[in-house]
């Protein structure tokens, strides 16, 4: 299963831990994470479900391309990292 990891800076605001979830896209995987941790959603996605401007997600070391729909594919055993973008200052 893909594993999802989060910037430790999120822990200043809420409980968040690395986890393994089912999913074939980034959207699938995050939806499962948010099901268990609903408060986390608004920290990562904006009101419309788009990736926040200053958040970046890497899948196996590559930044996702679909920031609006998070449709980037994730393989079995993919490593998904949700990070702060340095553009946020």
């Amino acid at each position: 299963m893909p594993s999802v990891h989060f910037t430790p800076n999120l822990r200043r605001h809420l409980r968040v831990e690395s986890t393994e979830v089912e999913g074939h896209t980034v959207s699938d995987a995050l939806s499962r994470v948010f099901r268990d941790n609903p408060d986390l959603r608004s920290y990562v996605l904006d009101d419309q479900g788009r990736l926040r401007t200053h958040v970046v997600i890497y899948v196996d070391g590559r930044a996702v391309r679909d920031r609006k729909g998070l449709g980037d594919a994730v393989g079995e055993g993919a490593e998904i990292h949700v990070m702060q973008a340095l553009s946020g200052g």
């Binding site: 608004s42 009101d47 419309q48 479900g49 609006k68």
Partner: peptide
């Protein structure tokens, strides 16, 4: 929960947040 705009069916770059 902070105030938020309803998610639009066809989310676009212009949809408010």
């Amino acid at each position: 929960p902070a105030p938020a705009y309803a998610k639009q069916e066809a989310s676009s770059e212009e949809a408010p947040s």
